[in-house]
Design a protein around this nucleic acid. Structure first.
Length: 615
RNA sequence: GGCUCCGUAGCUUAAUGGAUAGAGCAUCUGACUACGGAUCAGAAGGUUAGAGGUUCGAGUCCUCUCGGAGUCACCA
């Protein structure tokens, strides 16, 4: 099948209009949509756009085109017209062939390989503390997006940039050096990333203590007297002043800066300490990624890339995209595109954030030749990526047209944004444990946790709930996560979909055991509405995958799977499958179930959600 | 203040410019001694923030107003 039925119908309508009214209409301008459930029909053509050139009433135009299609398109069995909507019903033969096709095609819903390479960059953690709720959303989006792009035929490289250097990790390092007493993750039994994170938190505590002590000194009183604004309270002033203080007065601050300088100078002891502590963190990250079921093809480390971008700056100067100010700093002026002037190189010749990103973009293109890169980064960086992409376009980089920022809303708590210092961060490991615990609790209430694979099933259910919960909403929507209510297992959830698959799995086990002959399925013609609904839903799947890929939006897949599962539950409730009276009916319903199971598993697989054998 | 994004049932949300805005949760009512009830059916709940405009047709596009978020560092 080289052409989809929608394309066939578009073309046929276009021909009908040309034949009937003598006016050419481009086939892709013809609107064909699935018929809404209140009306009979499978696909609906909208005829309003043609009434003007036909110079006839909408229902007359609809009837004339419908008549033409019925006569000329074998797949069109019948039609009806309601107002300006032409509802077309496809032949049972078409649906039978479609079902067999969907079942026999191992890659149903997947597109042929395009040969186009796409890089998806996600997670991008800092190595000074463990992964949290925000990283979970990022990872789930990034990983499923890469699966979806793969299904759309692209060759995907999953990449992670590890922010493994800078002030933050130096804080953890210094803190461990001063207060760690030689303890290690092994000696304490604490997971490596949490171990390092604990020293980061400890550092912040010690800094706070130092700051509070300083506030009592004469020096602090003098600073306060000199800088306090009239409407400002003393407390507010010191809150605002903290960063300034840390950079100018704090002894801990001074020590951290010295450590960073030693690291940048490749001081062997500092580098050794840095390696050791990052090593602990990576062990911890690996465990969390494994539990989440996400992985990477390529790791980039900021320690290798943070000096990149100088050559691209030279390039930009040569091309006249950048300009140099008197102090030697290099700038780009984007005011004509509605942005600001941005510095791309400091006066002392060192890089800023965007310099690094410019250099990294070029390096990655050299590494993999990806004409397209998807950056999975929270929406607080929208402006940064707008600017980055604009600059790369102006530099005429060969991959500039394929850049996409998959921007997602921050995950917040009912109390507001998560704050490390206030201890309100929802830890990724804790969260995973929690959802599995809830799944176990629910299973126990229903009286069924026994069996050899019980733990494995509970893991799949818990994670299925969590992943579906985070993926089902449009990425750009900001998300408020309530740990009290946590994740639901009923209604529009992962387990709801898993349950429909488990039902189908039960049927398939029986088919196998009893060696049921499924060949009579082809003789079945009297489709019930519940069956037709499922056929139509299955028919939509390839298009949904494509939409999700084009829009970089896994939530389309999640919502599709939910609707398919819902239709299946209704089908299951209303009709007998295994106990159907006629052999053809039974065989058809089993085949239909098998196809639904296959698509559910494939669709949920794109989201990283596995199906439990039992629940 | 400039720029960007968002306002849909009490809550969480869906809807390539197309038919009576579709779900889930919560509330109320029904359906199993099983082809598995983590299910199904029903009730109730909407001026799609507000006002104009474009269109045969607007939750969707344009303008304004109100409300919220993000960002506007030689930080990352």
């Amino acid at each position: 099948m080289t052409m989809t039925i929608i394309e066939r119908l578009q073309q046929a309508v276009s021909q009908a209009i040309e034949t009937l009214y003598g006016e050419p209409i481009a086939a892709d301008k013809v609107q064909i949509a699935p018929t809404v459930s209140e009306f009979t029909g499978d696909y609906t053509a909208v005829v309003f756009p043609f009434v003007k050139l036909a110079k006839k009433a909408p229902d007359v135009v609809g009837a004339e085109i419908g008549d033409f299609l019925e006569k000329n398109v074998p797949e069109v069995q019948s039609f009806n017209v309601i107002k300006g909507f032409l509802n077309l019903e496809l032949s049972t033969d078409y649906w039978q062939r479609f079902l067999q096709n969907a079942l026999s095609d191992p890659g149903f819903g997947r597109r042929p390989r395009t040969g186009e390479k796409v890089m998806v960059e996600y997670s991008s953690p800092n190595t000074n503390k463990p992964l949290h709720l925000g990283h979970v959303r990022n990872c789930l989006l990034g990983w499923s997006c890469s699966q979806i792009l793969d299904a759309a035929g692209h060759d995907v490289v999953k990449a992670q940039i590890v922010n493994d250097r800078g002030v933050a990790i130096c804080k953890s390092m210094l803190s461990w050096q001063k207060f760690g007493e030689g303890k290690t993750p092994e000696s304490t039994g604490i997971k490596g990333d949490h171990f390092v994170g604990d020293y980061y938190v400890l550092f912040e505590q010690k800094t706070k203590e130092e700051y509070e002590a300083w506030q009592q000194t004469d020096e602090a009183r003098a600073v306060l007297a000199a800088n306090l604004k009239p409407e400002q309270s003393e407390k507010e002033f010191f809150k605002d002043y903290k960063n300034k203080w840390f950079n100018t007065h704090s002894s801990l601050g001074a020590e951290v800066r010295e450590m960073l300088l030693r690291w940048e100078a490749h001081d062997p002891d500092t580098v050794a300490l840095w390696r050791q502590m990052n090593g602990w963190v990576y062990q911890g990250f690996d465990a969390t990624y494994a539990k989440l079921g996400v992985d990477f093809d390529k790791l980039y480390y900021e320690s290798d890339t943070y000096l990149l971008g100088k050559d691209i700056v030279d390039d930009g100067l040569k091309k006249g995209v950048f300009f140099r100010k008197d102090d030697g700093s290099v700038w780009v002026n984007l005011t004509d595109a509605g942005y600001d002037q941005k510095v791309v190189l400091r006066a002392d010749g060192t890089s800023v954030y965007i310099t690094q990103d410019l250099g990294t973009a070029r390096m990655r293109y050299h590494d993999f030749g990806c004409k397209s890169v998807v950056y999975v980064v929270a929406d607080e960086q929208n402006y940064h990526f707008d600017v980055l992409f604009e600059v790369l376009r102006r530099l005429d980089e060969p991959y500039a047209a394929g850049l996409h920022h998959l921007s997602y809303g921050l995950v917040e708590l009912p109390t507001g944004r998560m704050k490390t210092r206030e201890g309100t961060v929802v830890d990724a490991d804790d969260l995973i444990e929690e959802v599995i615990r809830i799944a176990r609790e629910q299973a126990a209430e229903r009286g069924g946790t026994e069996g050899p694979d019980a733990e494995e099933n509970l893991r799949k259910i818990g994670l299925g709930a969590l992943k579906f919960f985070m993926i089902k909403v449009n990425p750009k929507r900001r998300m408020i996560f309530n740990p009290e209510e946590s994740v639901d297992l009923q209604g529009q959830t992962g387990p709801y979909i898993q349950y429909s698959w488990v039902r189908i799995n039960g049927l398939m086990q029986r088919v196998k055991k009893e060696n049921v002959d499924l060949s009579p399925a082809a003789r079945y013609t009297d489709f019930q509405p519940q069956e037709k609904e499922l056929l139509k839903a299955l028919h939509e799947y390839p298009g949904v995958v494509l939409t999700a890929a084009n829009e970089y939006d896994p939530s389309h897949i999640a919502n599709y799977c939910y609707n398919l599962a819902k239709s299946y539950h209704r089908f299951w409730h209303d009709l007998s499958v295994f106990n159907a009276d006629a052999p053809a009916t039974r065989a058809f319903r089993l085949e239909l179930s098998r196809a639904v199971g296959k698509v559910l598993a494939a669709g949920m697989g794109l989201l990283g959600i596995e199906m439990p054998e039992r629940m």
